[in-house]
């Protein structure tokens, strides 16, 4: 899955490289075309492209597999008999999912940066606020965005873990997690449900633009972290309540 994730920025970079032509008169350069001017944009562009579907997809697969996958293989009972301890097993499984969130995001960012450096010229980056920062600073900003997206995916991971404790069929838990991430984003786009938006775990997913301003605005980072922490607390508590009393019959 990490390889597939790494392929996304490379595909974007190659496609843009092959198809880019001067912007038509009267129209600004397309968003994607901006990376032809500076390869460092490839990483950010790839992350933007991956956030709505591709990253939640892989995270859903990993988080949904945590408990249900072990139950499906029949290894869950032997882990519990070892004894691993139910709380400990849950914590370790969640830690594994968190590590994957980080690895997935870092993979997209790193592969994007690499593809950009190879295929396009690299230079100082113009931020959304109009300021220009050095290559080193922009790499740091890319890392910050990767951290932001990692944090964004923690709530979804907790939801996946919770669903995973309810079933012995890993595919079911994966699908349910992924569907929830899509549903949450669709609801987030319905203006009629505006009261609900701040509570959706995907609400701040694309809010990392604030990290591309000078000075950095940390508001959305903080709000996002708080929201994700809430999801972790609620889903974690529910998963613990479910799993600690569950009859392991698989």
């Amino acid at each position: 899955m990490l390889i597939a994730l790494a392929a996304v920025p490379v595909l974007i970079a190659v496609a843009v490289k092959l198809s880019s032509r001067p912007a038509a008169p009267g129209r600004g350069p397309l968003f994607l075309d901006r990376i032809t001017q500076n390869g460092l944009f490839v990483a950010v562009t790839a992350l933007v492209v991956c956030v709505p579907l591709f990253l939640p997809l892989t995270v859903g697969v990993v988080a949904g597999d945590t408990i249900a996958g072990e139950a499906n293989l029949g290894t869950l009972r032997y882990l519990l008999l070892a004894p691993a301890g139910r709380i400990r097993l849950l914590l370790v499984k969640y830690a594994g999912a968190v590590a994957f969130c980080f690895a997935a995001t870092a993979t997209v960012a790193a592969s994007g940066a690499l593809a950009g450096v190879v295929l396009f010229p690299v230079g100082p980056v113009t931020l959304l606020s109009g300021d220009t920062v050095s290559v080193g600073e922009s790499a740091l900003r890319s890392l910050l965005i990767a951290a932001y997206i990692t944090v964004s995916l923690l709530g979804l991971s907790a939801i996946g873990l919770l669903i995973s404790t309810f079933t012995d069929v890993p595919v079911g838990a994966m699908a349910a997690t992924i569907v929830l991430s899509v549903v949450s984003q669709v609801l987030d786009n319905l203006p009629q449900l505006e009261w609900l938006h701040p509570w959706l775990f995907s609400h701040y997913w694309l809010g990392f633009a604030d990290l591309l301003r000078q000075p950095i605005s940390w508001t959305s980072f903080g709000e996002n972290a708080l929201l994700q922490a809430g999801y972790i607390a609620v889903c974690g508590a529910l998963a613990y309540a479910k799993f600690s009393n569950k009859d392991v019959l698989s």
Partner: peptide, 17 residues
């Protein structure tokens, strides 16, 4: 938690990766 380390078990067939 204190009993299981002293118990070896094979329950309903093997389960392995």
């Amino acid at each position: 938690a204190s009993v299981l380390p002293d118990v070896g078990a094979l329950v309903e067939g093997p389960g392995f990766y």
